[in-house]
């Protein structure tokens, strides 16, 4: 092979999943906080703040899934069956929350049903994604090219805990988005929610960061052996600094954008932490990125197009966000 596309695909897929986590993260987070919205007016505004962009955000889930299939099909064929039920639950929850965008507006008699569908659906979808993440970090029972465990193996105390952690994490992103998009009383409320979500997230990330190396000696080795620890200790240190900045941004009534920016950076560091723990494995303990990769022809054929298309996509996605910039309004809903 002339050129190794695996690192490029690792980067592309890593970015796609990260975009998904950020973008659908904040709109699922808004959905979680929707459960606590105090009035129909608040719910309308919450919904309007994400209605124009949620579809695009969810597209990254499909892109992430298909990117995994395209670049590392062996990982796709092992991981997805292993998380059969969390995926099922996530998809069904996403069905109801996705429908709610149109249906609560049009189906006023059943608005309560769709409101709950949106709030509870967003929460369950988030939790299920967290379970998938936890199960992925723990690894799967594999024989040859197949997952050989049972469909409930992925439900463990650790994966349930990561599910909870992600609910806090997405709530933080959602609350920071609402700080940006809401005014007055609703913004104040968003700041209160952001504080709670932030503390929950911090605690959960801390616990997962301790739990993971205790559970897995390879991961402990990765972080705590010399000289790794000299470089890698910067990750928790940076996280601590950012956490402080985030707290101050949330509580400072004058800043609106900073809480979201710092929350994004906190997510990046957690994400980086997971990547450091697992590198270079894509099916932990079994297959590396290179072993699970699709044929070089496939990676090149799709890779060239993707490298060309991604910037274009980011441009018009950016345009769409630009059109709907500013505070969420009650009046730009439905034609």
């Amino acid at each position: 092979m002339i050129f190794d596309f695996v690192p490029i695909w690792t980067l592309i897929l890593g970015l796609a999943v990260f975009f998904y986590v950020l973008l659908d993260g904040f709109d699922l987070g808004v959905g979680i906080l929707y459960n606590f919205a105090s009035s129909t007016h608040a719910r309308n505004l919450f919904m309007n703040s994400i209605a124009p962009v949620w579809d695009g955000n969810e597209t990254w889930l499909v892109l992430g899934g298909l990117g995994l299939l395209a670049a590392f099909p062996l990982a796709f064929a092992i991981i997805i069956p292993a998380v059969y039920f969390p995926i099922l639950v996530m998809l069904l929850a996403l069905v109801f929350r996705g429908l709610a965008f149109e249906f609560r507006q049009r189906d006023r008699e059943h608005r309560g049903f769709w409101d709950h569908g949106f709030g509870i659906g967003s929460t369950i979808a988030t939790f299920a994604q967290g379970v998938v993440l936890g199960a992925f970090i723990q690894g799967f029972q594999v024989d040859g090219r197949h997952f050989t465990g049972g469909s409930l193996d992925c439900i463990t105390p650790f994966s349930l805990f990561t599910g909870l952690a992600l609910v806090f994490g997405y709530s933080l992103l959602g609350a920071c988005w609402l700080i940006l998009k809401m005014e007055d009383r609703l913004q104040t409320q968003a700041r209160r929610h952001a504080r709670l979500a932030f503390l929950g997230t911090l605690l959960a990330v801390g616990l997962v960061s301790l739990w993971t190396p205790l559970m897995d000696s390879d991961i402990a080795q990765r972080w705590f052996s010399w000289p790794n620890i000299a470089f890698l200790s910067s990750v928790p240190l940076l996280t601590a600094v950012l956490a402080l900045l985030e707290w101050r941004a949330i509580t400072d009534e004058k800043t609106q954008l900073k809480p979201f920016v710092y929350a994004v950076l906190l997510f990046s560091l957690s994400y980086l932490g997971i990547a450091i723990s697992l590198w270079p494995m894509i099916v932990p303990h079994h297959y590396s990125l290179w072993q699970a990769a699709s044929s070089p022809d496939t990676q090149i054929f799709l890779g060239v197009g993707t490298l060309f298309l991604l910037p274009v996509i980011l441009i018009y996605t950016g345009w769409s966000y630009w059109v709907f910039r500013g505070k969420a309004r009650g009046d730009i809903g439905y034609h």
Binding site: G56, L63, A70, G305
Partner: peptide, 19 residues
Amino acid sequence: SPMLAYEGLTAFTLEAGFL
């Protein structure tokens, strides 16, 4: 997989961006 991924990259994102 490239066919499905190209569907996502060229179509879904286009639809979602302009929808």
